[in-house]
């Protein structure tokens, strides 16, 4: 019965295209830039996309995915990056051994998460407002610590090589930032979609009162979520500092909007529109390729932003339209 087969398969096909709008968009921009800018396809360029554009943003966006999954958002991921970076640089300057300084850096970032946890889980302020407040406070604190925002440089000599390892090192030929990103992504995927913690975070984001009525210590999970987000973001602070050997106040905020964008682009990969790590990673990949490709094709910087915006719009629009269609059938 061919007619019947047809009536079943057409909606299925269109739906899977819609579900995979993100993958289709990735393929499209890849082909487009390969055609527009021959340099794009070179191995060196693709590696640079992964190390310079992808790795750090992927880590920040992974952190953001936890906050969005819990029904919130974290606007202070940049603050956690900066605090980690500041603590790391300060401890190195104070002559501490690199591993200890790195641990101190992570702790510096986690302080931001603890602050958010108190505001959100303790006092009950909405995540958007609480982390916005942290963003502002964090910026002022950094200005106070640095005489109004002066960068803190490490001296060109006398810095141990170990310091540069996080940013510039390789292990079996793979750049360390990319390796760290892969580890964080794998861990976050397990944590969010395969662990008890992730299930509770997801349920909290969907219907918090049911979590509470299921006898789960909701506030403890919420607090843990924001601490985890800052902890992951702090890793970026360390890598960033190690790469550029300088702490620049409030530089972490550069990742914020792209991380949010990638997370929401990623939700289109899920049949129920849920935030998910694979989706977020593909979202970051898409943004990274677009940033690099537009640069190589010599487009005006401002047009690059327009291009990125249009791309986000179209992926989200296809994803939502498709979910609406799925809800009707």
């Amino acid at each position: 019965m061919p007619a019947r087969q047809l009536s079943v398969s057409i909606p299925t096909v269109t739906r899977s295209i819609g579900r995979h709008a993100l993958i289709a968009a990735l393929a499209a921009v890849f082909v487009l830039f390969a055609w527009l800018a021959p340099a794009f396809l070179s191995g060196a360029n693709l590696l640079s996309v992964l190390v310079n554009n992808f790795a750090l943003l992927a880590i920040v966006a992974t952190a953001m995915t936890f906050a969005v999954s819990a029904g919130g958002i974290d606007l202070s991921v940049g603050t956690a990056i900066d605090f980690a970076s500041f603590a790391f640089v300060s401890l190195v300057l104070a002559g501490q051994p690199i591993p200890l300084a790195a641990l101190g850096g992570l702790a510096g970032g986690v302080v931001v998460g603890l602050f958010n946890a108190v505001l959100i889980a303790g006092i009950g302020i909405s995540p958007f407002l609480a982390t916005l407040g942290t963003l502002f406070v964090g910026r002022s604190v950094q200005q106070l610590l640095t005489n109004g925002g002066n960068p803190v440089y490490l001296p060109p000599t006398g810095v141990p090589d170990a310091f540069r390892f996080l940013g510039h090192g390789t292990i079996v030929g793979i750049p360390v930032p990319l390796l760290v990103a892969a580890l964080v992504i794998a861990g976050a995927w397990l944590g969010l979609s395969r662990s008890r913690f992730g299930r509770v975070v997801l349920a909290t984001g969907i219907q918090a009162s049911v979590v509470r009525y299921s006898g789960i210590a909701l506030r403890r999970y919420t607090a843990a979520t924001y601490i985890l987000v800052s902890g992951i973001a702090a890793v970026v602070g360390l890598i960033l500092t190690s790469t550029v050997t300088v702490y620049i106040p409030s530089s972490g905020n550069a990742f914020l909007l792209n991380a949010i964008g990638a997370t929401f682009i990623g939700t289109t990969l899920s049949p129920h529109g849920r935030p998910n790590i694979p989706g977020t990673v593909l979202g970051v990949l898409l943004l990274s390729i677009v940033a690099n490709g537009l640069l190589l094709s010599g487009l005006n910087f401002y047009w690059q932003q327009v291009g990125t915006g249009l791309l986000i719009f179209s992926v989200l629009a296809i994803g939502f339209a498709n979910r609406k269609a799925a809800a009707r059938t």
């Binding site: 008890r196 299930r199 349920a203 969907i206 219907q207 009162s209 049911v210 509470r212 009525y213 789960i216």
Partner: peptide, 28 residues
């Protein structure tokens, strides 16, 4: 519909929500 079940979670995710310890061995 507010406190008893999470409407946007699946039957499985709702059913095991209060007993995740039972299903958790490091990973679910």
């Amino acid at each position: 519909r507010r406190d008893g079940v999470a409407l946007e979670l699946s039957v499985t995710e709702n059913t095991t929500l209060a007993s995740l310890d039972r299903f958790s061995r490091g990973v679910l």
